[in-house]
Design a protein around this nucleic acid. Structure first.
Length: 300
DNA sequence: ACGCGTGCCTGTTGGC
DNA sequence: TGCCAACAGGCACGCG
């Protein structure tokens, strides 16, 4: 399930395949995945891809449209989406689709420079069909609610920046997963960062001290940075644009390790549904403040 | 306004 | 061995 480190890896591996190239065709293939609030995907034909960036879990292609205006092509991979580059001649469709799979839902044919001859393809495939593509203008993009309401990039936050974002009665886990609060965090990096910070996922976000928030931000940034260095986590579906797996799944301390031993204290890791998601944590290293502790504070 | 529960979607897994 | 419910989870949406 692509989260920030996986999307960052996709963007990095996609760049050499797309930047400076021109889109010669763009089409949906199996079932609709293009958001209706934008333009039909075919309108991307003739555009040059100047740059590929990431915002939260979104892949953002910066386009120089055929008519000279700017365009944006956004891809959200959601659960099982993949962007796969195939450096091959489009005449050989079998070879082209080899890099993708039977779940292909969209394709971008690319030409070198401003050429007309398709020499490579980017396939968007997605078995679970949750992934979405949006073709729009920079102006319309700023109006798109999901985009404009995205929280800050966690790797750009500093010091105590997390503290004001945690003034909520929701659980800290729900807060980390909320894309309006911080962009790009999913279940894996929420659980991993909470373990590293020694914070129980169910803890009320507003109960976190400034020190707790500083420690959590540090843990979150560490885990994201380490994962990016390892090219992300491949549980099952995730691959980069070249079809390669990541390696950070080998470094999980808690995610998918329920019933196994805590790497820190050796006790058994517990699984619980928190904020509607499976959460794994160490009941010893990540304690909830006890009610008696609250009482102590209140009577002081 | 905010927090929470549910549905979407399909391949995989585990229990009987 | 086969069947089927449960599960995976990001996000939109509706409810209280």
């Amino acid at each position: 399930m692509p989260e920030l480190p996986e999307v960052e890896t996709v963007v990095r591996t996609l760049r050499p395949h797309v930047e400076g190239r021109t889109i010669v065709f763009a089409e949906e293939i199996r079932r609709p995945c293009v958001l209706k609030d934008g333009l039909p995907l075919a309108k991307a034909a003739g555009a040059r891809i100047d740059e590929v960036t990431r915002r939260g879990k979104l892949v953002v292609m910066h386009l120089h449209m055929a008519d000279g205006t700017s365009g944006r092509l956004l891809v959200h991979l959601r659960m099982t989406g993949r962007l796969t580059a195939a450096e091959a001649c489009p005449a050989d469709r079998t070879a082209l689709r080899k890099g993708a799979d039977k779940y292909v839902r969209a394709g971008l044919g690319l030409a070198e420079g401003s050429g007309q001859t398709c020499s490579s393809v980017i396939w968007f495939s997605d078995p679970r069909t949750f992934g979405r593509i949006l073709l729009t203008t920079p102006e319309r993009l700023e109006q798109w609610s999901f985009w404009k309401e995205l929280g800050p990039e966690p790797l750009l936050l500093e010091g105590e920046a997390l503290y004001p974002l945690m003034r909520s009665r929701a659980s800290v886990k729900a807060r980390l997963l909320d894309q309006h609060v911080i962009a790009g965090i999913g279940n894996i990096y929420a659980d991993e960062s909470l373990f590293r910070a020694g914070i129980h996922p169910k803890r009320e976000a507003v109960s976190l001290s400034r020190e707790d928030c500083a420690r959590l931000l540090k843990a979150l940034q560490d885990v994201l940075t380490l994962s990016i260095e390892q090219c992300g986590s491949s549980i099952k579906d995730y691959r980069d644009a070249d079809g390669n797996v990541g390696a950070f799944q080998n470094s999980f301390a808690v995610y998918s390790r329920a019933g196994e031993r805590c790497v820190r204290c050796g006790r058994i890791l517990r699984k619980e549904k928190i904020a509607g998601r499976t959460s794994v944590f160490c009941p010893h290293c990540q304690k909830l403040p006890s009610s008696s502790h609250h009482k102590d504070i209140a009577t002081k």
